[in-house]
Design a protein around this nucleic acid. Structure first.
Lengths: 204, 204
DNA sequence: CCATTTAAGTATCGAACGACACATAATTGC
DNA sequence: GCAATTATGTGTCGTTCGATACTTAAATGG
């Protein structure tokens, strides 16, 4: 059903995707309104009418990023029967994404607001909240492994989730510093070696 | 020997240390000139006279940070006879520093310029260069371990250095997100478990 | 046809940014 | 004492920041 009034002339989804890539690459404060409007091909007036404010646009961009990332992560975590293979798949698929030449390097949630002005603390906090959520997802998959018996009941899933998330976050820095896809996977090789040692009686 | 002209009224080293902490906490672009001058207790004129520019001040601040950090890292890496214990000490001492309540959380070199405007790409590149250097130091210690026989000659020291540096970088994000000192060490526990698996015939 | 609604374009707002011109103050060397 | 040198304080430069007021354009509904 067509809405009243003059129809929008630009593709909102396409504009949002462009904004996402800019924020992903340059971060929240590193992406100016003028860079946004130039790249999106709209005026600041249209941007504010369609997205509300720079911060609201950023949050929508993060949601768009997460919608794709969560889809990938959920598939990786649920495709394999054991927690070990699930976590390894999560790491490897993210490593592929982080080094994909067609998108900015590293993870937007990790890199886009690590250092901001005090005025934009809320932006930093929003991404920190996203990271907490990622941690919860990883830990939930480990807990499932314990429940299903492929991880020993004594497993410290909190510490284990923290470890693999630390590796994942570190990979974002490596990716930004230009590491190759192969180098990223070599790092994951070593991270996975810790698994058996941590869960000596694990079957996964 | 006293220099000619009117003597400086503020303590340059103290002012630099204050600038370092601000840049450490808020990042390069997140720290404005006005925040710097207010905190340092000097005017912008004095700042420019003493340090040249905001970027030059930042570089001096990073050098100050690195001078302390390198001292700690070098001591950690050389205090123990085996590469394993040296790397573990490096990780643990950095974890303590990252969670020290008397200083900003995480590593300045990792966090202070992850996202910047294109105009300040040189600042980002400078920190990336510092990280490359840290990698070289870690790898050199591993190579020494191979040379001294506590690591097997087949050890892939490049990949191993990349792995432990990834953990170290990831720890900066964890620290920024508020993880406890104990949680950081628990992460390192797991990172070290990968060691034996990587170097099955290592004696360290 | 005309009121209503929504978007686009122009032009600009006040604030903050990094940086500096200029005049003044305090020291050294002769 | 006086020139030379260096630091300080006041004030402000031009730019860019995020955000809007206002006008004009294009659609719908009666």
């Amino acid at each position: 059903m067509p809405r009243r009034g003059r129809p929008r002339r630009f593709d909102r989804d396409r504009a949002l995707r462009i904004a996402m890539e800019l924020f992903w690459e340059h971060g929240y404060e590193g992406t100016s309104l003028s860079l946004l409007t130039e790249s999106m091909g709209i005026t600041s007036t249209s941007l504010y009418a369609a997205f509300g404010s720079k911060e609201e646009l950023f949050r929508e961009a993060v949601e768009l990023y997460n919608s794709a990332d969560d889809l990938m992560s959920d598939r990786a975590l649920n495709r394999y029967p054991t927690a070990k293979r699930a976590i390894e798949a999560l790491l490897r698929e993210n490593a592929d994404a982080y080094t994909d030449p067609s998108t900015p390097r590293g993870c937007m949630v990790v890199l886009a607001a690590t250092n901001v002005t005090t005025a934009n603390k809320s932006v930093h906090d929003y991404l920190a909240h996203c990271r907490k959520n990622d941690y919860a997802v990883v830990r939930a998959r480990l807990n499932r492994g314990v429940a299903e018996g492929d991880l020993p009941p004594t497993t410290d899933t909190a510490a284990m989730a923290a470890f693999y998330l630390t590796v994942l976050h570190g990979l974002s820095i490596q990716a930004r510093d230009g590491c190759s896809n192969a180098a990223a996977h070599a790092i994951i090789d070593r991270a996975m070696l810790a698994w058996e040692a941590t869960c000596a009686n694990g079957s996964g």
